[in-house]
Design a protein around this nucleic acid. Sequence first.
DNA 1: TCTGGGGTCCTAGGACCC
DNA 2: TCTGGGGTCCTAGGACCC
Length: 426
Amino acid sequence: MLAQNKVFALVDCNSFYVSCERVFRPDLAQKPVGVLSNNDGIIVAASAELKALHIGRGTPAFKIKHLLKKYDIHLFSSNYALYGDMSARVMRSLEKFTPNLEVYSIDEAFLELTGINCPNWQQYGQKIKASVEKWTGIPVSVGIASTKTLAKLANTVAKRYKKFNGVFNLVAHPKFKQVLQSIPTPKIWGIGRRYAEKLQRYGIHDAWQLSQCEDKWIEKMTTITGLRLVKELRGISCIDLELDIMPRKNIVSSKSFGKLVTDLSKLKHAVSQYTTRAVEKLRQQNSLAYQIMVFIQTNRFRQEAQYANYRSARLETPSAYTPDFVKIANKMLTEIFRPGYNYQKAGVMISDIISHKYAPLDLFAPCYLDDERKTLADFSDRINDKFGRDTIQLASSGVEQDWKMRREQLSPRYTTCWNELPVVQS
DNA sequence: TCTGGGGTCCTAGGACCC
DNA sequence: TCTGGGGTCCTAGGACCC
């Protein structure tokens, strides 16, 4: 039996965070709009109108403050409760088109359409696009091709030219070569700045040239990952859809402070809270972990004494009990803390994670799953789930918490909080 | 004053063992 | 004195993604 040619679609929400905000603020439809990172630090999502002003992803908010009035720019603090909820709605809409759906990120999904008897993929893509927009209010772009990498590429074409109305199909495209020639290497999924520079030195500037590279050579240049990518550009599908949601292998919780921190006690509060958050995520995915790492750092942009350090430790038996980790984290923090610096950021990383199904039996040390620690953790998770995050929290997280991040432009939680539902004016 | 946060995979090189 | 060679495991660093 011949291998069936595969068909993938990549559906990508346009300026996703901005589009989420606009669903509830239709008055901002044609205006320059941006969404800020934590601490209102940098732009993480920019509308087309904002990009047209040469203000894109990564621009520090303070650098454009003087332009806000002049161009009628609207900025929002990031509102992940809203974006997560909108994302789930988009994904549910996409599920109507295929059971083979990979949620690739908060604003992107791959659909495998192999086997669907469709005479016109362009039309099918338009149908997907129109449906998602109708059901959720979020505009999307659709790229269709025979591999995931080419579907990504088709998606950038769909976004680039207005005439395609947000959908581009590369399956059996008569100008396949020209399309690939129009894509510069850094735009290719899997080629970042470093590899793009490296390839440029050998005269490789676009996707077509890359697809023509010799296997051995490209593997030497970009490892096995790059070779796989090149094969995908040639239309040979090497990256399958990932349908299973795999548990995280690392869980990080870290944040910049709303204002610089100098004393250990406040750092401890922050680290306690980040650890709490990370271990909550660990429990959510039914895992236990052995390892925790703590780090602190000063602000590298400031002209002043710099310090950064980290330390990690291993638990004797794996756990998902917050105090087990907080105790060690604070001990390590004390060890790496040096007085006299302005700290800007702290964080923890939990690693060496296993499923609770594989928790080792230890005759001499009590297992987290078997003792009262689990009961306590489950109880506080249920309370916090019902009454809101941090309803129950450790005393070590502090009460004052003046180091917490700034979110001065926060939009209401339109979809996730009863008190903040949008009001229809009559 | 003000510059994000959270992930994955691959490889080279060192430590250690036989 | 001569100082081998193969295997595994671990980690740090580099690359990428959203």
